[in-house]
Each structure stands twice: as structure tokens, then as C-alpha cells.
């Protein structure tokens, strides 16, 4: 196996509670690996330690025990952050900066200058669909726009890994869908994505692999197909099937030693109904307005 994009090795994190004798164990002996090219979802209820894990990976919080690595470089080293971009949980950024200024600033921190910086900012504004909102101050951005500018700043120095803390939290379904598409687009370009979420439905659609945290312990981990797939069952969706055809299929199945367990009309998701119902009037304005 190639070098993991992220390795968390035996990490325990204990937060002391000020002026009290007790302390909070946020993570307990956590070990985690993210392979390059994957979309990895870190799931868990609020307070389960997702953000803490991500901050330890980025060297923002030192672990009490254990260590973390990004492409083999210890997270304590500043140089490990060359290869990673981070979108923190509910970012607001500097309200007085415009979208373009925000990207330029973060680009400079990533070592970009001059024409390269200018081109990269253009490219990213287009990628996240904020070209028309570039001159507006972030104070007037919607939640979805903030998340997209946040994603853009995480990508500005072309990192091989992006870490996203709750990228779709608080964003409406259309906005969440756009962010999901962006994440899939990143995967196509070979970028590894580590994201945290407590919104399971959204994760299910895009993650290759998930880990489930509960009270700071990784209780389940594996490829999404392995976790969700039922080994010996197959789903079949037909259009315009007559009752006779269904009967024939059932007989055929029993002849071959299989069995039809369930027969039902598939239902579209509430999300899709919502999206279809709200789509048309929003289509032109959606991308750049709150």
C-alpha cells in the first residue's frame, strides 16, 4: 500500500477543564488511515471528537498522546501543511474583505505571487461559482457562499489533501448539492478528501470510506460498500413492468434457487422533491446570491 495521505496513530486528547479537577477526554486511542485519492467521511454526533481529530491532523491542537501525519510528515511540522488545505467548521472569515481579497490573502500565505496568484484566484472563483460575487464583502455572503469561498481558500495552493469540517452544515439542499459536486470534482482530479459530518445522507452519497466516532472512540470503520451492502441481496428497479412479467420473474427466481423478498414502488427522496420544486425560479440567481 502506498503512503497514507493521513495517518492518525494512537491519539488520545484530554482537555483540562479550567478551575475544575475533572477533564474531558475528547479522543481515546484513535488510529485512522486515509489512503490517497479517497473521499473519507468521519461521522459522529456532536461532541464525538470529529473537529478535534481534524485539528490534531492539521497541527492546530497538540495531542496528549500519539501523533498524526500528513503524507508521512509529522503534523507538528509546519512543512506538513504544504500539502493540505483546511475548511474549518462554520467559517466567517474577515467580514470586511471581499471574496477575491480573501482568496488573494490565503494564496499569498500558500506562497503564490504575481500572475500565478491572479490566475489561481480567477480559476477558483470560477470553480466555486463566485465570480460575480468577487467584489462583495463576505459580511453579505450566505452560508452556502461562505462554505464555497472557504473551500476555494483551502484549495488555493493546490494541496493534494483537503480537510473539510462539516462542509455542508447549515447549507440548504441546493447549496449542499453544489458542495457535494465540488468534492466529487476534487476526487476526479486525484485530490484526497477527508471530511467530517453529522449529516449521514450527504456523506453516504460521496464517501468511499467512513469512520464512525462516538465519545472519542472509533466504533466502526470501513469501505462504504462493505458497511452498507447486504452480501447476498440485489436490488432491481424496473420501469413499465406488467404484473405478468413480475410473476414470471418471481417464478424464474424460485426455479434458480433465489427468492424475491420484497416488492415495492421506489420512492424519490424528499430532497429530490424539494430540489425539483425549488429549482426553476432559483436557477439563474442561485449561485451568486444569498
Amino acid at each position: 500500500m502506498s503512503e497514507p495521505a493521513v495517518a492518525v496513530i494512537g491519539v488520545t486528547k484530554i482537555f483540562p477543564v479550567p478551575f475544575q479537577r475533572r477533564s474531558v477526554v475528547a479522543l481515546r486511542d484513535l488510529t485512522l488511515r486515509v489512503s490517497p485519492g479517497q473521499i473519507y467521511g468521519l461521522l459522529g454526533p456532536n461532541g464525538s471528537g470529529k473537529s478535534t481529530t481534524l485539528k490534531i491532523i492539521l497541527g492546530l491542537v497538540p495531542p496528549t498522546k500519539g501523533r498524526a501525519e500528513i503524507f508521512g510528515k509529522d503534523s507538528n511540522l509546519v512543512a506538513s501543511r504544504e500539502a493540505v488545505g483546511f475548511l474549518p467548521e462554520s467559517p466567517y472569515f474577515h467580514k470586511y474583505l471581499t471574496g477575491e481579497e480573501t482568496l488573494r490573502f490565503h494564496g499569498k500565505l500558500g506562497g503564490l505571487r504575481g500572475a500565478a496568484l491572479k490566475n489561481r484566484v480567477e480559476e477558483l472563483l470560477a470553480l466555486v461559482g463566485l465570480t460575480n460575487a468577487r467584489k462583495r464583502r463576505l459580511g453579505g455572503y450566505s452560508k452556502g457562499m461562505l462554505q464555497r469561498i472557504g473551500l476555494a481558500q483551502a484549495l488555493v495552493h493546490e494541496p493534494a489533501l483537503v480537510v473539510l469540517d462539516e462542509p455542508t452544515a447549515g447549507v440548504d439542499p441546493a447549496g449542499a448539492g453544489e458542495i457535494r459536486d465540488l468534492i466529487l470534482h476534487l476526487k476526479e482530479r486525484g485530490i484526497t478528501v477527508l471530511l467530517s459530518s453529522h449529516l449521514l445522507g450527504q456523506v453516504q452519497e460521496i464517501c468511499d470510506r467512513v469512520g464512525i466516532l462516538a465519545n472519542g472512540v472509533l466504533v466502526r470503520e470501513g469501505a462504504l460498500d462493505d458497511l452498507l451492502g447486504i452480501e447476498n441481496q440485489t436490488e432491481l428497479v424496473l420501469e413499465n413492468a406488467s404484473p405478468e412479467l413480475l410473476g414470471e420473474i418471481e417464478t424464474l427466481a424460485s426455479k434458480r434457487g433465489a427468492r424475491v423478498l420484497d416488492r415495492r414502488r421506489p420512492r424519490t427522496s424528499l430532497e429530490r422533491v424539494f430540489l425539483e420544486a425549488t429549482e426553476s425560479p432559483r436557477e439563474q440567481t442561485r449561485r451568486d446570491t444569498p
Partner: peptide
Amino acid sequence: IEDRTIYTILAKPVP
């Protein structure tokens, strides 16, 4: 910290 910019800045290769 409130704006979270301290995270986006220090998550870049900035000592």
C-alpha cells in the same frame, strides 16, 4: 478565532 481565520491561516504552511 471567532471568524475561524486563525485556523485557515495556521492550516497553511505559516509558522
